[in-house]
């Protein structure tokens, strides 16, 4: 039996009927059509589906949509303002942190939260924060550098 839930995604209020077993990831990608959030595994191993739920990095493949009732969800599509990339996104672009880009949305969401609670992270802080987000392309080096640069820029 479907249930009606309401939640906010990137500051837009949605009200929709979902099956109880539908995941937040399916809701975001399929019901809302925000396909920026990626599914690399569906079982909590890769971090590709990371979104912020009430500010907390969350694997949306492991959360049921109905659990997000009343929550504020942020996805990669919510980072830019009027098509203008934010500092973190710019840093990813400028510093070569993006190759295939499949891990990028999850990486961005995880590091967005990191910089919110720790605007001046050490390299070790960064590595710890993104250790649940797998990337097979970059060896993480340029991702770490991009986050460092974004934080320095933030502190200017």
């Amino acid at each position: 039996m479907k249930r009606i839930i309401s939640l906010t995604i990137n500051s837009v209020l949605y009200e929709l009927a979902v099956e109880p077993r539908r995941t937040l990831l399916e809701l975001i990608r399929q019901d809302i059509g925000l396909t920026g959030t990626k599914k690399g595994c569906g079982i909590g191993d890769c971090g590709g589906c990371t979104v912020l739920v009430d500010g907390i990095p969350t694997f949306s493949c492991l959360m049921l949509a109905i659990q997000a009732e009343g929550c504020e969800v942020e996805t990669v599509e919510g980072l830019a303002t009027d098509g203008q990339l934010n500092r973190l996104q710019e840093a990813f672009v400028e510093h070569g942190a993006i190759q295939c880009g499949f891990c990028t949305p999850g990486m961005l969401m995880t590091s967005t939260e990191l910089l919110r609670h720790n605007p001046n992270p050490t390299e070790q802080n960064i590595r710890e924060a993104i250790s649940g987000n797998l990337c097979r392309c970059t060896g993480y080096q340029k991702i770490v550098e991009a986050i460092q640069h974004a934080s320095e820029a933030d502190n200017e």
Binding site: R29, T35, G36, A80, G83, Q89, F92, I98, G101, F102
Partner: peptide, 21 residues
Amino acid sequence: TRAPRVDARDKAIGKAVYTDD
């Protein structure tokens, strides 16, 4: 040079379209 990738912005903003999208 270190020119940014031509597809990086779309990927950073969640706009790049992969097959499953």
